[in-house]
Design a protein around this nucleic acid. Structure first.
Lengths: 172, 172
DNA sequence: GTTTAATAGTTGAATTATATATTATTGAAC
DNA sequence: GTTCAATAATATATAATTCAACTATTAAAC
C-alpha cells in the first residue's frame, strides 16, 4: 500500500531469539516476554503509521495527541498538567509542545482565575479546521487496521489489554 | 509497591474523552481508538517499569534491548543493521548506542571477513555477567505482570496481538 | 497568621534520537 | 570488467525529549 515506511521484519525473528534463549534458561518466562515485545512492536508500528499520515500536516504524533486530547476535553479546554497525564508526556515536554502550537496559532493559553498557578489551553478555530481534515483520515486508518477483527475479538482484546494495563500500573 | 514512578491516571479518563467525542461524531471508530490508545499506554508503562529496574545498572531500555537481542542471537553475535531490525531503532541511533556500549566495555566490534561492509558485534564477558544479574530480576517482573492471567488468557492475548501487528504491518 | 509542603508551569543544560549526506563495499546489468 | 544501483556503517547537523533547578501560587500544619 505504501513503500516509504520501513517494514519491521517478521516478528518471528524476535520470537526465535527468545526461544533460543529459553531453551538454555528454563526460568525464562517465554510467553510473557513475547507478549511484552509484541506490545512494544505494535506501539512502534502504530506510531509510524500515524506519523506518516500526519506528515503532510506538519504535525508529530505527540503534538497531534495533544490537540486531540484537548479537542476531546469538556469545553475543548484543559490545563497542561492534565494533558500530560492523558498523553503520558512530561511537563517539560508539554511546555515545549504548547509553545510550538501557540506559535503556529493552533492553541491559546489563558489564565485561570480560580487557581493562578494553572493555565487553560484552548483550541483555535484554525486547529479545529485542521482536525476536521485529519480525523476522518485517521479514523479510516484505524478502521482498516482492525477490519479483520470480529466484534468478539475486539471485545476480548480490549478486555485483556485493560487487564494488562491495570496489572502493570498496580506493579508500580 | 513502589513510590517513585508516576502512576498514569486511570485509563477511564482517556476513554471518557473518546466517548465524549464519539457522542457528537458518529463516524468515530470508538473501540478501535481505545484499542490503539491502550497499546500506547501499555507500551509506555512497560517501558517505565523496565527503565526503573535498569536504572541501578545504568542502562537505558534501548541499550538493554540491544544487549539482550545480541545475547539472544546465534553465537551471541549480530551485525548492527540486524540489531536495528529486531529492536526497531534507527541505524544512526544504533551506531551511537554501540559506541556507548563499546566505551563501557560491554560489546566489541569485529570486522566481517565475508562482507567487509558489515561489522560483527559481540558481547564481552563483562556484559554477560551483567546480564546474568539483570535477567532474573526482569523475568521475575514479567511473571508478576501476568500473574493474574490464566494460560488461556495469555494464549488468546498473544494470538490477538500477533494478528494486530500483522494487520498494521500489512497496511504500510 | 506564619511556616512548611505541595503543585503548576517554565527555563537552561544535558541527553537522546532523527534526518541527511558520505564513505566503503558488494552485487547486478550490460 | 565497467558502470550503476543497493547496502552497511558512520559523521555531522538538527530536532525532540528529559533532568534539575527555579518561580509563583495554593493548601496544610501548627
Amino acid at each position: 500500500m505504501n513503500d516509504t515506511l520501513p517494514l519491521l521484519p517478521p516478528f518471528s525473528e524476535v520470537e526465535e531469539g527468545i526461544c533460543r534463549l529459553a531453551s538454555c534458561r528454563p526460568d525464562l518466562p517465554k510467553q510473557e516476554i513475547i507478549l511484552t515485545r509484541l506490545n512494544y512492536h505494535i506501539a512502534k508500528s502504530l506510531r509510524d503509521v500515524t506519523n506518516q499520515l500526519l506528515k503532510p500536516f506538519d504535525l508529530s504524533y505527540v503534538s497531534f495527541s495533544a490537540l486531540m486530547m484537548l479537542f476531546a476535553s469538556p469545553n475543548s479546554e484543559i490545563n497542561p498538567s492534565k494533558l500530560c497525564d492523558v498523553t503520558g508526556e512530561t511537563r517539560t515536554n508539554m511546555t515545549r509542545i504548547s509553545d510550538d502550537l501557540v506559535t503556529r496559532g493552533l492553541i491559546r493559553r489563558h489564565p485561570n482565575a480560580e487557581d493562578r498557578r494553572r493555565i487553560v489551553l484552548m483550541l483555535t478555530p484554525k486547529a479545529e479546521n485542521l482536525l476536521k481534515k485529519i480525523l476522518p483520515l485517521l479514523w479510516e486508518k484505524q478502521k482498516e487496521i482492525y477490519s479483520k477483527f470480529s466484534a468478539d475479538e475486539k471485545k476480548t482484546l480490549e478486555a485483556l489489554l485493560k487487564k494488562q494495563l491495570a496489572a502493570i500500573e498496580e506493579l508500580k
